[in-house]
């Protein structure tokens, strides 16, 4: 299977990183649910906090599971991240722009 220099990232010992990552992401999700279901904050507050939590979730995924810092192939990683940011911006920004017609109509 392996061609070229193929480095196996053999992990030894207990996978602490993954377990902590799993717990963190569960906790972040639980907080979001609790905010939405069990508290009575105004929607704007809830949404803001959920966005922040979502960003935290993103970092957990990148660092704990996707070994973001361990790559030896920066040449591809950097443009990919920029492209991902571009898509995220387009999807979120675009949707807000498009759906804002409701405020004009109503």
């Amino acid at each position: 299977m392996e061609t070229k220099e193929h480095k196996f990232h053999q992990e030894t010992g207990f996978p602490w990183k993954h377990v902590i990552g799993l717990l963190l992401s569960l906790v972040l999700t639980a907080i979001a649910f609790w905010l939405a279901l069990a508290t009575h904050q105004p929607p704007a507050v809830v949404i803001t906090i959920i966005v922040v939590l979502g960003f935290g979730q993103l970092l957990v995924q990148l660092y704990m599971f996707m070994h973001f810092t361990e790559s030896d192939d920066r040449a591809w990683q950097v443009p990919t991240i920029y492209f991902a940011l571009f898509i995220a911006f387009t999807v979120v920004g675009g949707s807000i722009w498009i759906m804002s017609f409701r405020s004009i109509v109503s």
């Binding site: 898509i87 387009t90 999807v91 675009g94 722009w97 498009i98 759906m99 017609f101 004009i104 109509v105």
Partner: peptide
Amino acid sequence: SFVVWVHHFFTMGAGPGV
């Protein structure tokens, strides 16, 4: 291909800018 999707629902009426 990621910045054209509204052409499937122009008739939604999102406004001339969009």
